[in-house]
Amino acid sequence: RLRTTILPEQLEILYRWYMQDSNPTRKMLDCISEEVGLKKRVVQVWFQNTRARERK
């Protein structure tokens, strides 16, 4: 499996959503993934990793 590259524009959108809610619902993940143009699972893992980084 290839690692997904997240573009700066996509990152900006993801962080904007993250500021609103760091733990989005499944429905929100659907909306975010549509807006960003990434698979739902990629967005979900990005949120998990970002929460983990914040805890450090």
Score class of each variant (00 low, 15 high):
36 V>I: 05
32 I>Y: 01
24 P>I: 00
19 M>Q: 12
15 Y>C: 13
19 M>W: 11
53 R>Y: 08
2 L>V: 13
2 L>F: 08
37 G>Y: 00
37 G>T: 00
7 L>W: 02
46 W>T: 02
18 Y>C: 05
26 R>G: 15
11 L>F: 08
28 M>A: 13
20 Q>P: 01
1 R>M: 05
48 Q>E: 15
7 L>E: 14
54 E>R: 04
28 M>I: 11
6 I>P: 09
20 Q>A: 12
14 L>N: 02
21 D>N: 08
8 P>T: 11
37 G>P: 01
39 K>I: 00
15 Y>G: 10
51 R>S: 05
3 R>S: 04
56 K>N: 11
29 L>M: 15
54 E>Q: 08
20 Q>Y: 08
54 E>L: 05
5 T>I: 07
54 E>C: 00
27 K>A: 15
43 V>G: 04
46 W>I: 04
20 Q>E: 09
20 Q>C: 04
42 V>G: 02
43 V>N: 00
9 E>V: 00
22 S>V: 12
49 N>P: 01
14 L>W: 00
38 L>S: 04
9 E>S: 08
40 K>A: 11
40 K>P: 14
2 L>C: 01
6 I>C: 07
17 W>Y: 15
10 Q>N: 06
1 R>F: 09
50 T>S: 07
44 Q>N: 06
17 W>F: 09
55 R>M: 15
23 N>C: 05
30 D>G: 11
27 K>V: 11
26 R>S: 15
33 S>Q: 02
31 C>H: 15
56 K>T: 04
48 Q>G: 06
37 G>F: 01
18 Y>G: 04
46 W>S: 02
9 E>F: 04
18 Y>H: 07
15 Y>V: 11
54 E>F: 05
14 L>I: 00
10 Q>S: 01
53 R>P: 05
2 L>T: 13
32 I>M: 04
8 P>F: 07
10 Q>K: 07
19 M>E: 14
7 L>M: 11
11 L>A: 14
23 N>K: 11
26 R>T: 15
49 N>W: 02
18 Y>K: 04
35 E>P: 05
18 Y>R: 03
2 L>M: 15
46 W>N: 03
9 E>R: 04
53 R>K: 13
37 G>Q: 06
34 E>L: 06
25 T>Q: 07
53 R>F: 13
52 A>L: 12
29 L>F: 09
45 V>I: 14
25 T>L: 00
49 N>K: 10
17 W>V: 04
55 R>V: 11
